[in-house]
Design a protein around this nucleic acid. Structure first.
Lengths: 219, 219
DNA sequence: TTTATCTTTGACTAAATGGTTAAAACAAAT
DNA sequence: ATTTGTTTTAACCATTTAGTCAAAGATAAA
């Protein structure tokens, strides 16, 4: 199909007429995110995409390159959102509520991505190097700086308790992501492995986490 | 060596006279925890243990069996501690401080284990089935029940704010483990990848987390 | 010293796996 | 219809990898 490059969405296409490149990416995403770089098999990805293994190498010459593409897509879906959501000009409480709400939505839609990112970065931390500046322009609108001075400002107004931006961000992200990433063990230990119960727990935690974070810095 | 089975510690031995089985376990632990089941190579483990690959199969017939052993050791080092530390008969505040203090120590000593456990459980959640009851006798001294009723009791005394035991445990564990598990990304985004700074951050967070958790439930 | 048992090794095998190639199928342009 | 360029496939290759085996070394007992 010589106009593949014009197609950047496929919601209106049926599975069958979806272009090959996209089918490959979808399949690769699925396999890589569940089995990791080392656990994934090119044959399995080809099968899932419904194509020949050779065709995989025709589009993405090596497993490495295909993996990098998938990783980058996952990364750019999750990491820039943090900055994007935290640098609006709402007051800090609203900002936090907005962030938690939206990040939990994102996590619900892509529950395997954070674990995938964490795991692969642990395997090969060098991948991070180019990726951060590519996805977060730290220069203008420095994330930490913005939050830091916003907190300081609202501390002076007597609205929030003092807290370092790094600790605050770490807490928020930990409380949002960890229950998803560590689902198997938490579900096992705290819920006798009852999937439904854990889903309900996560649902109820949405409001809980918001309140918990807000209360912890409300003066 | 016919008295291998008598040796269960080796702190007094030099690397050289350490028995083979232990050398294998140490090497396997290292490789598996850094590369995961699928990324690890039997040859690499053999090399690290300073033995022949065939000897690996002599002691642990398959990669699977060796992995299971390593996983079980890691699991039993981390999971039962939760119960052990939370079921003492201290008041809740002391209990939480004690837990956080000790769990952070454990994490500092074995920073790769939680990521290892989480990742492998994600790959194969079935592993959990036997492991939980083997490591935590849920029957007597039910962990959640104990905490739950302790909270309720202290709520009635007007000492703590009401909170579900599951949410409290999830918060504590998330705040302790996540900054270790997600170290590469947090260090990258929040600390411009400065390792020393991140170590310092973790060090300072020890007191911070304790205070944060306590304050969040102090009435 | 001999014998029996346990430990270790080098050499090997079968299967899996990432990657290649040459040719076929297809689509568009002339 | 022919040509030209692109997409897809079946068959193949080289390497890696878990696992085996027979024989050699070591160790304690007889």
């Amino acid at each position: 199909m010589w106009l593949n490059y014009l197609v950047n969405t496929y919601s209106f296409m049926t599975e069958h007429e979806m272009n090959t490149e996209q089918k490959i990416l979808d399949a690769a995403k699925d396999i890589f995110q569940h089995k990791g770089m080392t656990g994934a098999r090119m044959q399995e990805i080809a099968d899932k995409a419904g194509i020949n293994k050779a065709l995989l190498h025709y589009y993405y010459r090596t497993k490495e390159k295909l993996f990098e593409k998938v990783f980058e897509l996952a990364f750019s879906l999750f990491i820039p959102k943090v900055k994007e959501m935290m640098t609006s000009d709402k007051p800090i409480f609203e900002k936090l509520e907005f962030f938690i709400e939206n990040y939990l939505n994102l996590l619900q839609k892509h529950p395997y991505i954070p674990g995938f990112i964490i795991n692969e970065l642990n395997r090969n931390p060098k991948m991070l190097v180019g990726l951060i500046e590519k996805n977060i322009q730290l220069k203008e609108g420095n994330l930490l700086g913005v939050i830091e001075s916003q907190i300081q400002h609202e501390v002076e107004l007597g609205i929030v308790k003092p807290i370092s931006a790094r600790n605050l961000m770490t807490n928020v992200i930990s409380l949002c992501i960890f229950p998803i990433v560590a689902r198997p063990i938490l579900q096992g230990v705290l819920f006798e492995n009852d999937k439904k119960e854990y889903d309900l727990f996560l649902e109820q935690r949405r409001a809980f986490v918001k309140e918990y974070i807000i209360n912890s810095i409300k003066v």
